[in-house]
Design a protein around this nucleic acid. Structure first.
Lengths: 207, 207
DNA sequence: GTCTATAATTGGATAGAC
DNA sequence: GTCTATCCAATTATAGAC
């Protein structure tokens, strides 16, 4: 612990996260990373072994926390408001959106996440599916209980649509740009509320 | 015209499209492209001048047709079924999904499109926004007329969510995989119907 | 239009001193 | 743990023969 944020390893992770968000994984060179982190080029291989492993570690650092937060909120929602679809969706949506408000570069990570969805092959998708796939399955189970009338196939389609909408919204693609008068925090809360309403209505649509 | 599909230029475009879908733009080298297209390495610079321009041309080839098809269907929907939200959404969703059924590599292009959304800076986003942004604005207008009660801000949010869901669904990320017993064509039509229902319900949600 | 050959640069990774 | 220096493979791009 202690000054984790200022040692070499953390500086590399932070710089890599920002550059991956901006230029993608293949589009970012280790030289750019070490230059931005203001560390020596050899440090990345010393601490991470390879570029591929650096990519994985960039994910692990945020995903572990985000997944636990999602599952904790889901557990709480199922206890306190059983069958409440909006509460389930909030548990899914809020942790990633909260990252965009994080003081320390979490905002870059949500765009890195969007990148990951576009990566087709490579170890990365397997890494994510292996380590965090159970989270998505847990949410599928909860929504199935909240909407027992919805068939499995439609449920999966609509979950995919929801994940796509979330990814898109998180990455400030698209039409919506934060107006300069509106604070980031307010903008994010609006996004979360809008998405929960949209997805809840979509999930409840007649089959 | 004539044998456009078998000359060098078209072969390069086709090979590039497939590789871009699989490995991204930065992750694909021109040598991979020319190797798969079975043309000489120098041909790509002769025909396209640079890698960046090749990327743009890969987009132009499909986007021109797709955008015209979207606008034509939208025009038809507004004439024949004025105010019919589902018809508007169908006009937006069907052309890209139809590409996945295209005999000649259109299926790769939809994944290339998803890649494009993840590209943050670069000339590509500007190229797409400059050349095809008016299509999205046209759909925004149509939906605004179909749902006059929906405020501008919510409309834009929900349009972004819809575009995200579409992108995600097109790219076979996520949970849904086509079962081996189901033909591609049936799978795509199911996806389109499911998405139209989902998005229509989401757009109609109370503010 | 297509080829060979090569220039000029940049990439990931490592060896070895400190 | 951190540095310099370097290796070696791969990249984009071009020059010039055919």
């Amino acid at each position: 612990m202690s000054t984790t944020h200022f040692n070499t390893k953390e500086r590399i992770l932070g710089a890599a996260e920002e550059l991956f968000a901006q230029h993608g994984f293949a589009g970012t060179s280790l030289r750019q990373v070490t230059s931005r982190a203001d560390v020596n080029i050899a440090a990345v291989n010393y601490h991470f072994g390879s570029k591929e492993n650096l990519v994985n570690e960039v994910f692990r650092r945020r995903m572990d926390e985000m997944s636990e937060r999602r599952l904790a909120l889901l557990r709480k929602a199922r206890e306190e408001k059983p069958g409440d679809l909006e509460a389930i969706l909030a548990a899914f949506i809020e942790p990633p959106l909260a990252l965009t408000l994080d003081r320390h570069g979490g905002s870059a990570f949500v765009r890195v996440l969007a990148r990951a969805y576009a990566e087709k092959n490579d170890g990365l998708r397997k890494f994510l599916s292996d380590n965090y796939g159970h989270v998505l399955r847990e949410f599928a189970k909860a929504i199935h209980q909240a909407l027992p009338g919805l068939g499995k196939e439609d449920l999966y389609w609509r979950l995919d649509f929801t994940a796509g909408a979330l990814t898109y919204a998180m990455s400030d693609f698209g039409l919506i740009k934060r107006p300069s008068g509106v604070p980031e925090k307010v903008h994010c809360e609006k996004a979360a509320q809008a998405l929960i309403r949209f997805a809840a209505a979509g999930l409840r649509a007649p089959a």
